[in-house]
Design a protein around this nucleic acid. Structure first.
Lengths: 221, 221
DNA sequence: ACAGGTTTTAATCAATCGATTTATTTAATC
DNA sequence: GATTAAATAAATCGATTGATTAAAACCTGT
């Protein structure tokens, strides 16, 4: 079992890589296990041998990249909070810690980044639940950090809206890189890496801290 | 053929309503035509009779609500441009014309709103193409209006990024209303209607007009 | 070289899919 | 009331799906 992991890993990785690509291109529900295995060039029974069933395959495709992503994000958030010392960390620092690792992922594994975005929108409740176990802790910590860095005069409703918008800006960027190419239309390179990160942070920081639009009272407190 | 449209319409509408709901709940690819028809309580051959094939059904589910949506948006944009007279319309007015009708849709047909958001992320190229024919003109006109209302010092890359973020904020709001409930957790009502619209406009206006984050040169012009 | 477990293979299962065909019922027209 | 077209129903098609099985091939440690 010990030395056998080498061959094992090759086949497993081939299956996962192919699944990641196909899931990203056609949607998780649009790809059969058989197709993944055929395109990976391995026997059609090997997915069930290595991953149990279809859900096991999907879960492993996600798990192998989300876990490192979570670690990166939490490490950066720790760093930001340490640097702030007794003060509350600035909003843009928190956002940068949250967005940075996934902007990197967009460079390193664009198929996977797109897949993550797709699944954030996925309707299937079973998948939603698995997503919660994958991201729950990290999102919880960041949500708390963002909330303390937000203007105090924001009501619950405004905060909820803007948090959702912030997620939307990030996730849509993952899924719709193709639209970005249409938008720049060759007039410049497709924004990525540090430039993309900077714009994302700037956009969401400005949006989150915009003067409250609720008239009079200052909003539902 | 004339008087028969009455019965016809009932069955057709029942199929479309059920398809809209199921597509929204489980994803377009996650629902079979048979299931739609069974849950609609009609014979399993009627979808092919009324809509030709599976794609025809999907297209009609979209078309019947997107066309009125497009008309509303264009009418509002005309209104905004007329009111501006010789001046360029303000950014928030343009955004309000774009977001308003779909925020209404979120109230009137939440399943459909969610479905639209899902398909904006859909990977299938055939669906992407159909989406372009559905939304292409409207998005083109609004994109132009937004661009002229944007700060002049924004480079191509920044403009592309922020446009994508703006779409993301809107679309994510359509698909992830469930997250909104988690965010407010009963401390206030789920933001909707005018409040939601106002926040969305405020967020995106602030984000789009944020001072450019590109250091030095002022960005790629 | 041999024994043990692991990995791979080929064949097969019932279930479900989109689609078609044929037959029956319903409604409108003359 | 007979004729004709539209709408509904029932039955069935081949193809594909996720999953299982039993045998073959492979590697490893001795």
């Amino acid at each position: 079992m010990q030395a056998s992991t080498e061959r094992d890993k090759d086949t497993k990785t081939a299956i996962l890589d192919t699944a990641e690509r196909l899931f990203s291109q056609h949607g998780v529900q649009g790809v059969s296990v058989r197709r993944v295995l055929v395109e990976a060039g391995v026997n059609v029974a090997l997915a069930h041998y290595h991953f149990g069933d279809r859900d096991g395959l999907i879960r492993e495709v996600l798990r192998r990249r989300v876990e490192p992503l979570n670690e990166k994000r939490l490490a950066l958030l720790d760093q930001v909070e340490d640097a702030a010392g007794p003060n509350r960390p600035a909003l843009d620092s928190v956002l940068r810690a949250f967005f940075g690792p996934i902007v990197d992922l967009l460079d390193e594994h664009p198929d996977f980044a797109r897949l993550i975005g797709q699944l954030h929108v996925a309707a299937d409740p079973k998948m939603k639940q698995f997503f919660l176990t994958l991201f729950g802790d990290v999102i919880g910590r960041f949500a708390a950090a963002v909330r303390t860095a937000l203007p105090a005069e924001l009501g619950v409703a405004e905060r909820a809206c803007r948090t959702l918008f912030t997620f939307g800006a990030m996730i849509h960027t993952l899924t719709n890189q193709a639209d970005m190419e249409l938008l720049v239309r060759g007039r410049c390179e497709v924004p990525r890496g540090e430039l993309l990160l900077r714009e994302l942070v700037a956009f969401c920081t400005a949006g989150l801290t915009a003067p409250t639009s609720v008239p009079g009272s200052g909003g539902t407190r």
